[in-house]
Computed example of a mutant assay.
Amino acid sequence: MKQLRGFLGLTGYYRRFIKSYGSLARPLTDLLKKDSFVWSENAELAFNRLKEVLSSPPVLALPDFTKPFIIETDASGKGIGAVLMQQGHPIAFVSKTLSAKQQALSVYERELLAIIFAVKYWHHYLSMGHFIIRTDQKSLKHLLDQKITTPLQQVWLSKLMGYDFEIVYKQGIENGAADALSRVQSSSLMALSYSTFDASIWKRVQESWNSDQKLQTVLQNLKAGDTHPRYSWNGNALLRKGK
C-alpha cells in the first residue's frame, strides 16, 4: 500500500501531461480504499500503462540548452531521489539507495547529499549555465551563507564550487516526484531519461567546426599530416580520443 501511494504520487505529479490520467489510474486508486487491496489483472495493466506513459513523451522530454534547468531533490531514511526538469516537464529521473553509514546521517546531511549526488550525476546538463535546485529542507536555502560545522560538509560543499545555481525551498507536500523516488526500495542506482536521434545533429556538429578557430587550426594541421595528442582526422570526421 505504501509503495502504491508512492507510485501514484510520482505519476500524479505529472498528471497534467497525461491524457485521461484519472481513468488510467482508476484501477490503482481503487486499491487505496479500505480493505480493497487485491492486485488484479486490471491493476497490473494500469500499472504498466502508467509506467509506459511516464517514461515517454510528452511527459518525459528532451533538454533545451537555451532554457534553465531545475533539479528537485529529496531524501528519505533509506534513499535519495531527484528529477531534472524544464518548464514543468521532467528530463530525467534518478534514485539511489543510501548505505548504512549514509542512513545514519542527519536529515540535513541526507538532503545535502541528495543535492550533491544530483548535481554531479547531471553535470553534463548543468555545467554550462545557471540552474535552480528545489529542496524541502528549508535551511539548505542558505547553504552558501552558512557556517560549515563538519569536515564532511566542507568536502561536500567543495563539490558544488564552480556551478552557477540557486537553492529554492519547496514544501514537501509539493515535492511529490522526488519524494516518491527517494523511497524506492532497490539495492542499485536507477535512472531514466528519454533520448532520440536527431538526424541533423551531425550536420550541426560539422558546421560548428567552421566557427571554432582553435579546431580550424587543429583540422588544418591534421589534414597536412601532423599528429595531435588528442585529436585525429579519419577523412570525414574530427575525432577526440577516437570518438
Score class of each variant (00 low, 15 high):
R5H: 14
Y21K: 00
S23C: 05
L24A: 05
R26Q: 13
L31G: 03
K34N: 00
S36C: 13
F37R: 07
W39S: 10
S40A: 06
E44Q: 15
L45I: 14
L45D: 11
R49W: 11
R49L: 15
L50I: 07
S56F: 01
S56G: 03
S56V: 00
P57F: 06
K67S: 13
F69T: 03
I70A: 13
S76M: 06
G77E: 12
V83L: 02
Q86L: 13
A92R: 07
A92E: 11
S95C: 03
K96Y: 05
Q102G: 02
Q103V: 04
Q103A: 07
L105I: 06
Y108F: 15
E109T: 13
I115K: 01
F117S: 08
A118I: 03
K120R: 15
S127P: 02
H130D: 10
R134I: 00
T150S: 15
P151E: 00
P151N: 05
Q153E: 15
Q153P: 08
Q154G: 06
W156D: 04
L157M: 11
K170L: 14
D179E: 09
L181M: 06
Q185N: 04
S188Q: 09
A191R: 00
A191T: 15
S195H: 12
S200H: 04
S200I: 00
I201Q: 13
K203V: 00
W209K: 11
W209Y: 12
V218F: 02
L219V: 05
N221V: 04
T227E: 13
P229M: 00
A237R: 12
K241L: 12
K243R: 08
